[in-house]
Nucleic acid binder design. Structure first.
Lengths: 206, 206, 206, 206
DNA sequence: GCATAAACGAGACGGTACGTCGCGTCTTAGA
DNA sequence: TCTAAGACGCGACGTACCGTCTCGTTTATGC
């Protein structure tokens, strides 16, 4: 199921009163407001969402089949755009990619919007898959392409699987931003990871 | 809160009928059985758990304040023990550590016991913290010590933060086993990661 | 609180789906059926009533605040109508009034519907008051009027409080039908009471 | 079941620790205290009684099979003794009997101890029967004897069933004291009832 | 402009689970 | 053997949401 299809669609020859976009916005923004106000995700019942948005329950169910589908749209509304790659060198591109991960990690921790929705999503495999397909996978593909270009340019070893290399580069950042809530994501971390990984841990043979 | 305190404790001078250990086992094993049978975690109500274990609801609430505290104990009961480090060399120790992560990833995926509980835990920060403190942190500390020893032995660079090095080594394995449900965890992956990270990605200057 | 208000009211400008009268009937009749089947009143939990009526618990709580309010409506549904007074003479009117009491006593004992609910109500003062106000008091007022008319007609002594006379007439019948479950309520009892009370217990001075 | 058997008996050759009478008193008096403090009877769980009396639940169950049996003993502890009949004349005896009913009615209304237990008992047929057999029936028998003596003495008509006469005399007082919580039980009511009933309601033929 | 048909708020409806409380039984340690 | 304490299986309590279903009302469009 693609993310785009998460909302229930109304088919072509529209008859009767059309769905109100204002209502749609009210719902999504209502959810955001509640999360921002510190309401635990577990307390976010459809009934409560409807109440806060001043909307009937059926109006929500008409658009999303379940709470998780709704959360996907909420998350999509707050997801930062893909980073622009400078293309000057592989190293620069990798730094930009990792820096975008770092920023998202910081954002998702400070704003609490993403932090909670993110956590919730991991517990529902179906939605996690959707999120993975539309948000994670494209960036991963981006990283793989950058590395493949680096192999052609001779900027990186050719005898190592690009997938492995990608995980070695991206892994540390993801672990810190997703799995370790208290980890520091200091400025310059992206460069530090890229350079350390490129150089290796073996002591410089002097 | 330490994991050991997740269960509600009865204090020292025990009065009245003591709590039955058999009941305790029945509950935890009942939960495992349900998860193994493919019951979605969201469908695991306290009521159902009590029903399967042939136990009153109050008996569960007497021991755990909420579902999550119960899951911590379930998880603890399935967590494999800490790996034994050979101590022959830093490289060997690192490989053993990563291999233990790989095995846990495989187990948690095949048995589905950990897979679900793990996912569920990530959505409840309090419990995640408890799990982190008792399961994640000790292993992390183990890794840091191994690396520090390596620095003293000259097996690894001294000018790099051991925390960063640890994340670079552990990150790829964790990303594959936790965040990417479909990733392959092929045999020999531990060695491959350790060696690649040690060597670095820079092309061999011939 | 009048009996009519025992049900929770929804106020005038009705919004949303209206309450189903069929459901209301199903509940009240379900309770009757259970009592008729000999279920002890103490075993009549709201949960069981809901189960028999094929109804959600909330649907019951939406209409009645507690079990007792529900019982008032059950009782009201089985209460026989006020008797028609012939008006030919005070004696005839009194006999009709007492006869109606006798019949109710027989009914409440045979059908067991009223008998149980009746007993239960006496233990809850609030509900007893409501029942008293709508069922007992009107009939009592009827009796008092009949006696007052009798005083004007010269059919009965003028130097005795009508309330006392009423209790002397009604008391024996009530005692037998309400307080003494095994008492006999033989045919002709009404006339016998009226005539005996009218005549007095003093031996006929011949 | 006679009232005397309401308490579970321990048979003759007593072995082991004997039951503490102090405990027995503590329980019964604890119940009275709770009722006097205005605790609704419905809130008087065995668990709460045990708590207030500082007693284990089993200790209560060892003595009474259920809550109602306990209430019978509580009631028995507050029941006033049978009245002494002067025997000077039937009228005097009847007045004394009714006066004792009047006083009990006043007591049970003012003290609230009996009032509640009384109401509760009526809702449980088994206990009501026990109460009836030990408290009501003896007094009734007393009244019937008095009337029979009156018939022999010529103080009362011989052509009327004594049971009927008794109900006509006792009925008004019972109705006012038991069934009508707000009725007045003024001084001198006993004499008034006896004299009015004896005289009859027929106007004095001048 | 007027009928049509879907959207909309409100809230009733049969369910399921919540977390608590009391039931009557049982199992301890201690008197 | 009794006692206080309290665990135990059970089941009802009254509440909250679930997702579905009427209601009366509103609002675009196509006839």
């Amino acid at each position: 199921m693609s993310l785009a299809e998460s909302r229930t669609q109304q088919d072509c020859p529209v008859r009767g009163r059309p769905r109100s976009e204002a209502v749609e916005r009210a719902i999504v923004e209502g959810v955001m407001k509640l999360i921002e106000d510190g309401v635990p995700l577990a307390d976010l019942s459809i009934e409560r969402i409807a109440r806060t948005a001043g909307v009937g329950k059926a109006t929500i169910y008409r658009r999303w089949n379940n709470k998780e589908d709704l959360f996907v749209d909420v998350m999509r509304a707050t997801e930062p755009p893909d980073p622009e790659l400078p293309g000057t060198s592989m190293r620069e591109d990798l730094v930009v990619l990792l820096e975008s991960l770092r920023r998202r990690g910081l954002a998702s921790r400070s704003s609490a919007i993403l932090h909670n929705v993110y956590a919730q999503m991991k517990s529902s495999p179906k939605i996690w898959a959707a999120y993975h397909a539309t948000v994670i996978a494209p960036r991963r593909r981006l990283g793989l392409e950058v590395l493949r270009r680096g192999q052609l340019n001779g900027e990186v070893r050719e005898d190592v699987d690009v997938e492995l290399m990608n995980d070695i580069l991206v892994g540390p950042m993801l672990v810190r931003s997703v799995l370790r809530p208290d980890a520091k994501l200091e400025e310059g971390l992206a460069e530090k990871i890229v350079d350390t990984v490129m150089e290796g841990l073996r002591p410089v043979s002097s």
